[in-house]
Design a protein around this nucleic acid. Structure first.
Length: 311
DNA sequence: AAAAAAGCCAACCGCGAGACT
DNA sequence: AAGTCTCGCGGTTGGCTTTTT
């Protein structure tokens, strides 16, 4: 096992490829394939090293490459995959059709990593530190600071008829598990279906201006199958649940009313088989309406915040 | 309007691993 | 068995573009 000698740079061109070079490479590969990259440039008449040709082809000229910006879904997938796989860009790319490892690496380094950092999330470990969790609480508080309506952020929200919609009760949701399957909301309370609006208040959440989440708890309904409702529906897990009478320990819930067999578990949970345990039974439906493109992303962040052990 | 800073991304570099001789 | 070759990967760079001052 030895190292390949560095290709002879004498007389070989470097730097950006011209359209003429691209065309030569495309034409040659279409006619002959690329069995031997080292020999290819000479055969094709290109003054490039084989490595450069291979890179140009795999990262740019390949016909199956998807150009253009990454969709929010793709970005979320990258974040989730990076959490599972780390900097294994080629493996991540293999799960994102049409995207190259180089492209994904660039997107991560220029956008996604910074976004997570702004959230107080360590991009290397994806651990949610207290800054992010606190930011979410700040967000909650800022929503109500001028309305004089907000119950203070509390660990066990009341469900009194007079209380307004409450926000994600993050502090009640902290637990130690690092398992992906537990990266879910622990508790949500609401009197009814309402829209919760979060606004930027100078916190670490400044990468978006605002977001809206509709929380539909459907007090009068039995828990329903998530898949029937909305593919984006999240799974809730908690020891407690509420109805108009207040909060109840989860064990009081009739298990027969809970359907978990067809829960749509997020893609990431099955990516590497580490989270293929049965999801916790559904207690409530929670519908997230896509008011903006960041919604899915925020949904994921909130999930992770709910699993933070550091709040 | 100009300069500086920041962002972006294609391309390069060096290394490890497997195939080949 | 050992040396050589090729490929693919992840990290880094450099130059162009955009934004900010």
């Amino acid at each position: 096992m030895g190292r390949a000698p560095c290709c002879d740079k004498m007389g070989l061109k470097r730097g950006p490829w011209t359209s003429e070079e691209d065309q030569i490479l495309i034409t040659f590969i279409h006619r002959n394939g690329h069995g031997n990259w080292r020999a290819l440039p000479k055969q094709a008449g290109l003054l490039r090293c084989g490595k450069s040709c291979r890179l140009r082809w795999t990262n740019y000229l390949r016909p199956d490459i998807k150009r253009g910006n990454f969709s929010p879904e793709e970005e979320e997938a990258i974040i989730n995959l990076h959490q599972l796989l780390g900097n294994r860009w080629s493996t991540i790319a293999s799960r994102l059709p049409g995207r190259t490892d180089n492209e994904i690496k660039n997107v991560w380094n220029t956008h996604l990593k910074k976004r997570l950092l702004r959230m107080g999330i360590d991009p290397a470990t994806h651990a949610v530190g207290s800054p992010a969790s606190h930011s979410l609480i700040s967000l909650y508080n800022s929503k109500y600071k001028d309305a004089s309506l907000a119950p203070p952020f509390q660990t066990q929200p009341e469900a009194s008829p007079d209380s307004p919609t409450t926000f994600l009760n993050l502090s009640d949701s902290i637990h130690d598990s690092q398992d992906l399957s537990s990266e879910i909301f622990s508790s949500v309370s609401s009197r009814d279906s309402e829209t919760v609006t979060g606004a930027d208040s100078g916190s670490r959440l400044d990468c978006i201006d605002s977001f809206e989440v509709e929380v539909d708890l459907g007090y009068d309904q039995k828990p329903q199958n998530i898949q029937d409702e909305n593919p984006q529906t999240s799974i809730l897990q908690n020891q407690d649940f509420a109805d108009e009478e207040g909060w109840f320990p989860r064990e009081n819930q009739d298990a027969s009313e809970i359907s978990s067999s067809e829960i749509t578990w997020d893609d990431f949970s099955s990516m590497d088989g580490t989270a293929d345990t049965n999801p916790q039974p559904l207690i409530w439906n929670m519908d997230f309406q896509s008011y903006d493109d960041d919604n899915d992303y925020w949904l994921n962040i909130l999930r992770q915040a709910a699993s933070s052990p550091t709040l």
